[in-house]
C-alpha cells in the first residue's frame, strides 16, 4: 500500500521549548499506525503539527503525495486530515446535533452530509438519544463518541486520534477500540496516539515510540509487543 501520510525530519517547538526534533514516520493507506510514548514525549505535538496548529520549523509533511506542512489548518481539514483531539474538546454550549453539524463545516454536499449524520448516529445510538442535549453535560465516554462522530462528519481520509482511551473505564475503552477497528475495516486510515500501549499495540499494525521528541523505536506492533525493552517500559511486565 502507498503511504497516505509521510513525515520526514519534522521539527517543531513551542516558544523556546523544542517539542519535536527530526521525526520521520509513515502511515500506509488503509492501516492503523500507533504513536506511543510517555507524557510529554511529543505525541500530541506530532498530531498538532500535522493538523497545522503548531508551526513546523523544518522537515516535510506529505499527505497523499502533496506537501501540507505550510498549509492553513482549515485547508488540511478540507483535504481530509481530521483530528480527534485529546480530552473534552467539544463545543460545550452547543447541542449534540450542532456539534455534529459543525464537523461538516467545510463540506458543500448537504445531501451526503445528512446521510453521514444518520450513519454516525447508527454507529452511536447513545448520541441519537441525546441530540438536543448540551454537549457539556454528556459523560466522558459520550463526549469521546461525540468527538469521533464530529470528526467523521468531515468525511476524513485520515483520522488522527489523540488518546481516545484517556479517562475512560475499561469497558468503554474496549467499546471505543472496537469501534476504531470497525472504522478501519470500512477503509479509514488511522494514526493513533496512545499512552495505553497494550491496547494500542493490539489494535495497530505498525508502531512508533517517541522519547523526548525523538523517535526511539519502531516496528511491527506484533513484534514490539514481545520486545523486552518495550514490555518493561510501556507494558509494565
Amino acid at each position: 500500500m502507498p503511504d497516505l501520510l509521510e513525515l520526514t525530519g519534522v521539527s517543531a517547538s513551542y516558544g523556546r521549548i523544542q517539542a519535536l526534533s527530526g521525526v520521520s514516520l509513515s502511515v500506509p493507506e488503509g492501516s492503523i499506525v500507533a504513536l506511543l510514548g510517555s507524557n510529554g514525549a511529543g505525541k500530541t505535538t506530532t498530531l498538532n503539527a500535522i493538523s497545522r496548529l503548531v508551526p513546523v520549523q523544518s522537515g516535510n509533511i506529505r499527505f497523499d503525495g502533496k506537501p501540507i506542512e505550510s498549509m492553513a489548518s482549515h485547508r488540511v481539514v478540507e483535504g481530509g486530515v481530521v483530528q480527534v483531539p485529546e480530552g473534552r474538546e467539544v463545543f460545550r454550549d452547543m447541542s449534540v446535533r450542532e456539534n455534529l453539524e459543525m464537523g461538516a463545516y467545510r463540506r458543500k454536499d448537504p445531501k451526503s452530509v445528512r446521510a453521514d449524520f444518520e450513519r454516525i448516529l447508527d454507529y452511536f445510538p447513545k448520541l441519537r438519544e441525546r441530540l438536543q442535549q448540551r454537549a457539556g453535560t454528556l459523560s466522558g465516554g459520550e463526549q469521546q463518541m461525540l468527538l469521533i462522530g464530529r470528526a467523521l462528519m468531515a468525511r476524513p481520509r485520515l483520522l488522527l486520534l489523540d488518546e481516545p482511551s484517556l479517562g475512560l473505564s475499561p469497558v468503554l475503552v474496549q467499546q471505543i477500540f472496537g469501534f476504531i477497528d470497525r472504522l478501519n475495516k470500512d477503509g479509514l486510515t488511522i494514526l493513533l496516539v496512545e499512552q495505553n500501549a497494550a491496547v494500542a499495540l493490539s489494535t495497530s499494525s505498525y508502531a512508533y515510540i517517541l522519547e523526548n521528541g525523538e523517535l526511539a523505536l519502531q516496528g511491527a506492533s506484533k513484534e514490539l509487543r514481545h520486545d523486552d525493552s518495550v514490555r518493561r517500559t510501556y507494558l509494565g511486565h
Binding site: S51, L53, S73, H74, V77, E78, V82, Q83, P85, E89, V90, F91, R92, D93, M94, M102, G103, Y105, R106, R150, A151, A154
Partner: peptide, 14 residues
C-alpha cells in the same frame, strides 16, 4: 459561537 467556546476545536473542524 464555536470560536467563542473553543477556538482549538473550531480550527479542528476547519
Amino acid at each position: 459561537r464555536a470560536v467563542g467556546m473553543n477556538p482549538k476545536a473550531a480550527q479542528l473542524v476547519g
